[in-house]
């Protein structure tokens, strides 16, 4: 694998970049015997430019969320590194690490679980400010109100004293987004931000995220399992499979001309406007998602791949090929 300056990163230094990133969870028996490792993130490489919105797409269990947590610095990478604005995350300690936490906002999947149920909205939004030393109460109040207005919870007064359980799912997620934004981050990581919301509010939340991203010039890393929602909310897509990025391209190019067999299968599986197909069991790609504890050798997708080439796909890792302009795909088919 070669380090690949991605789209948009040619003209600017990347805001955040992952190089050869591995996050493994070691399994131990009796507290000390190593019996294996769950390879949640297993060699991921990318660079995101400032102001860019990208999506990481994949089935559940492909390591997307672990990747998000590794980028947030909540998991230490087993190998490789995350660089943010030119500095390696692994080198950050104490004050510098805390400063990094203010630079990265995090929007989680379950909005109700993401909010402490015993605090009201004002306090929830005040917490990051307090943690980051905003002592002035009036200043905090001003920023809290501004954040609520920004996520369109207005008038802010109506929400300040509410507790999470008094809000609807969409409102809760807006509070989560407000909390992620209140420290004025440069990068926003949204881990399945709408998958637990009602279909009716999903688009609103996605529009809101996109709007805020454009307005603030944020870098947005948007993690989802749903390829169908990606087109309007990201500029670039990374398709992940078994802890690796198998294909990456600008959104339209990827959706219109998928190159990797896994991406093709994913796209074949999603939304078919024909209602008659709704009842048909669509298990494409066929087979089980791979075990991260014992991943298949070489190309992780080969056991499920319709184009499996014995002696190649199960022997040697495919490198990143570039079958189209700005389009990368790790598959021997492009050889």
């Amino acid at each position: 694998m070669t380090s690949s300056p991605a789209h948009g990163a040619d003209d600017q230094a990347p805001l955040i970049a992952a190089r050869d990133l591995h996050t493994w969870f070691e399994l131990r028996q009796w507290g000390f015997l190593r019996v294996g490792a769950v390879r949640a993130v297993d060699g991921v490489e990318f660079a995101l430019a400032p102001g860019e919105a990208v999506a990481f797409v994949g089935e559940s269990g492909c390591g997307k969320s672990t990747l998000a947590r590794t980028l947030l610095g909540l998991h230490r990478p087993t190998r490789g590194e995350v660089r943010f604005a030119g500095r390696s995350l692994g080198e950050l300690q104490g004050r510098a690490l805390k400063a990094y936490r203010a630079e990265v906002g995090y929007v989680q999947q379950d909005p109700y679980g993401a909010l402490p149920p015993f605090l009201d909205v004002r306090r929830i939004l005040a917490e990051p400010l307090i943690v980051h030393g905003v002592r002035d109460r009036a200043e905090r109040e001003r920023r809290i109100r501004a954040a609520l207005e920004e996520v369109r919870l207005s008038p802010a007064e109506a929400f300040l004293n509410q507790f999470p359980h008094m809000l609807s799912g969409g409102q809760q997620q807006r509070v989560v987004i407000a909390r992620a934004l209140i420290l004025a981050p440069r990068l926003l990581i949204a881990d399945e931000p709408v998958s637990m919301l009602d279909a009716s509010v999903r688009v609103e939340i996605l529009e809101l995220l996109r709007h805020i991203q454009r307005e603030r010039g944020l870098t947005l890393a948007f993690i989802t399992h749903d390829l169908s929602t990606v087109r309007h909310y990201a500029e670039r897509i990374f398709v992940m499979y078994a802890g690796r990025v198998v294909e990456s391209a600008p959104v339209d190019d990827l959706l219109d001309h998928p190159q990797h067999p896994y991406t093709q299968a994913l796209l074949a599986a999603i939304a078919d406007p024909d209602a008659a197909n709704a009842t048909r069991l669509r298990e494409v790609p066929a087979g089980e998602p791979p075990s991260l504890l014992h991943p298949p050798a070489a190309c992780r997708f080969h056991p499920r791949c319709p184009h499996f080439m014995a002696g190649l796909c199960d022997v040697e890792d495919p490198p990143d090929f570039s079958p189209r302009r700005d389009h990368r795909s790790a598959c021997w088919l492009h050889r």
Binding site: A102, Y106, P128, H132
Partner: peptide, 14 residues
């Protein structure tokens, strides 16, 4: 393991 604890870690709570 609650998400709000993870969120607190993400914004740097001690």
């Amino acid at each position: 393991e609650a998400p709000y604890i993870e969120a607190a870690r993400a914004y740097g709570a001690s």
